[in-house]
């Protein structure tokens, strides 16, 4: 038998078998759901609560529920008294950060041993860039909320403050820093 004929024959056989057995799986999901529904005990919310507070195992669950609910109430009250509720206090240290923008930092540094970025977004502490394919292009993507950020790259310990992708440059302690406005149209963020 030729190879293309064999393939055709196998295909036909498989199609026939599938169509012969198809009635077995038609409506299978509905049949299972119906059967299971018939076996499940019907319970009202009141009965569920009774079970929760019932003696034996239920008593422990009820106890846990009371502890949890009371703890939640007192924690909210305590936080309120301490003036620590962010939505009441409006303290930006506690406030929800606006959704971040992924900002890509790129620095070509062929042959460099280490490239980091320092800036106002990381308290001027080094965040390493990576060059996974070894082509000398170091990158790091950082999520930042909208705003103005000053930064510089540090390549093998040397300050490099003039990023070609920056929106502007400033001088600081006699060196250049780059500035990006995240959220600004066309900022590359």
């Amino acid at each position: 038998m030729r190879e293309d004929n064999l393939e055709e024959t196998l295909k036909n056989v498989l199609q026939r078998e599938v169509s012969d057995e198809a009635f077995h799986i038609e409506g299978l999901e509905e049949r299972i759901v119906t059967e299971l529904a018939g076996q499940l005990p019907k319970s009202s919310p009141l009965e569920a609560l009774k079970r929760l507070l019932a003696p034996t195992r239920g008593a422990r669950l009820g106890q846990l529920a009371v502890i949890g609910a009371t703890a939640a109430v007192f924690l909210v009250l305590g936080a309120f008294l301490a003036g620590h509720l962010p939505f009441l206090e409006g303290n930006p240290r506690l406030a929800v950060t606006p959704s971040g923008n992924e900002v890509l930092f790129i620095m070509p540094a062929i042959g460099a041993q280490s490239v980091t970025v320092v800036g106002s977004f990381n308290d001027w502490e080094a965040t390493p860039l990576s060059d996974e394919n070894g082509d000398g292009i170091w990158t790091k993507s950082i999520s930042l909320p909208p705003g103005r950020y000053e930064y510089a790259f540090v390549i093998d310990g040397r300050w490099w403050g003039q990023d070609p992708l920056a929106d502007e440059y400033v001088r600081s302690f006699g060196e250049y820093n780059s500035v990006r406005y995240v959220g600004l149209a066309g900022d590359g963020a």
Binding site: R148, E168, V182, G183, L184, D187
Partner: peptide, 15 residues
């Protein structure tokens, strides 16, 4: 003015 306008524009994307 450049600083204020840029800062304001950047923040305009905040709700």
């Amino acid at each position: 003015s450049t600083r204020l306008r840029n800062q304001s524009s950047a923040e305009s994307v905040i709700p």
